[in-house]
Computed example of a mutant assay.
Amino acid sequence: MKTLSLSSFSGFLQIAYVTTDVDEAIARFAAEHNVPAWARLPGIEIESMGGRHCKLNIALAFVGETQLELIEPLSGDDRIYRDALPQTGFAIRHHHFAQLIESEADFETQRDDMAARGVPIVIDGQSPGAARYFYTDHRATLGHYIEHIWYTPAGLAGMEQLPRNGVEL
């Protein structure tokens, strides 16, 4: 019996944006979208592909159940983020949605299925002890990337510590 793979649209957790200046982006999200509380991860290094790394300024926040991510590329193998931005001036651009995958086995199945279907995998890495992730390139058909991410229990616990923004009624 064949195991069905996840739809690329199941379990969306996050909307991610790239920016030329994460501090300015945070200020604009606060003023224009009522999202004032963010966790900042300055100068974080992530694995991009095949042992390559990039350095990023990242900010994370929740609005209800949706996580927002702001990414400012700084150096290294960061072209997947940098290519979406203009060369001069301030910008915020939509970059990807992130799909939360429930188990490591489902993560492997999803990754194998995407590769078998010929969907380009453009980032493939892990944060040891916290998460495994890969990005698929859907720009030709959807105009954006999709990040597929599985969190360890410690990674999920860390997400619970992120700032929550919302409207109290």
Rank of each mutant, 00 (worst) to 15 (best):
R52N: 09
R28S: 01
A37Q: 13
E32N: 13
G51Q: 06
A31T: 10
N34M: 07
T3G: 05
E45Q: 08
A98V: 05
L74A: 04
H94E: 01
D137Y: 05
G43S: 07
I123Y: 02
F134D: 01
Y81D: 05
P153T: 01
E168N: 06
L169N: 03
G155R: 12
L142C: 07
V35M: 13
R40N: 08
V167W: 00
V18A: 15
F107S: 13
D124M: 05
S5E: 04
T136C: 11
A37K: 15
M1T: 15
A61V: 09
I121C: 06
Q126V: 15
T88A: 12
I44K: 03
D21Q: 11
Q99T: 02
Q99W: 01
I123L: 15
H96R: 10
F97L: 14
L156F: 10
N34I: 08
L100P: 00
L85Y: 06
E24H: 08
H138D: 00
Y81H: 15
I101W: 00
G158F: 14
G118Y: 06
E168S: 10
I121D: 02
R139K: 01
D78G: 13
L156M: 14
T19P: 04
L169W: 01
F90G: 05
N34G: 05
D83Q: 14
K55T: 15
T19C: 14
N34D: 14
L60M: 09
A131P: 08
R132E: 02
L41Q: 11
G51I: 09
S127H: 11
A115H: 07
K55C: 12
I121L: 08
H96C: 07
A91V: 11
E24N: 08
S75C: 09
H95T: 10
I123P: 00
T3P: 00
T3Q: 13
A140P: 00
R111A: 02
D77L: 11
S75L: 08
V35R: 03
N57I: 03
T20E: 04
E108P: 04
R139Y: 00
E168A: 12
A105G: 07
P120R: 11
C54Y: 07
E147S: 12
A130H: 06
D113F: 11
E47I: 04
R132T: 07
L41M: 15
D124S: 12
R139G: 01
Q67D: 00
G51V: 10
G155D: 10
L56G: 06
H144V: 10
G143M: 09
D83T: 13
H148M: 11
G143H: 05
Q14L: 10
L68Y: 13
E147Y: 10
E160D: 13
E47T: 09
Y135M: 11
F62S: 02
R139I: 01
G129W: 05
E24A: 15
I149M: 06
V63L: 08
A31I: 03
V167A: 08
L68Q: 04
Y135W: 10
V122K: 03
R52V: 07
A131R: 08
A154F: 07
E108I: 14
L6V: 03
L60Q: 04
G118K: 13
H96D: 01
Y81W: 14
Q126A: 15
C54E: 06
F29L: 13
L56F: 06
D112G: 04
I15R: 15
T20F: 12
Y17D: 03
V122Q: 02
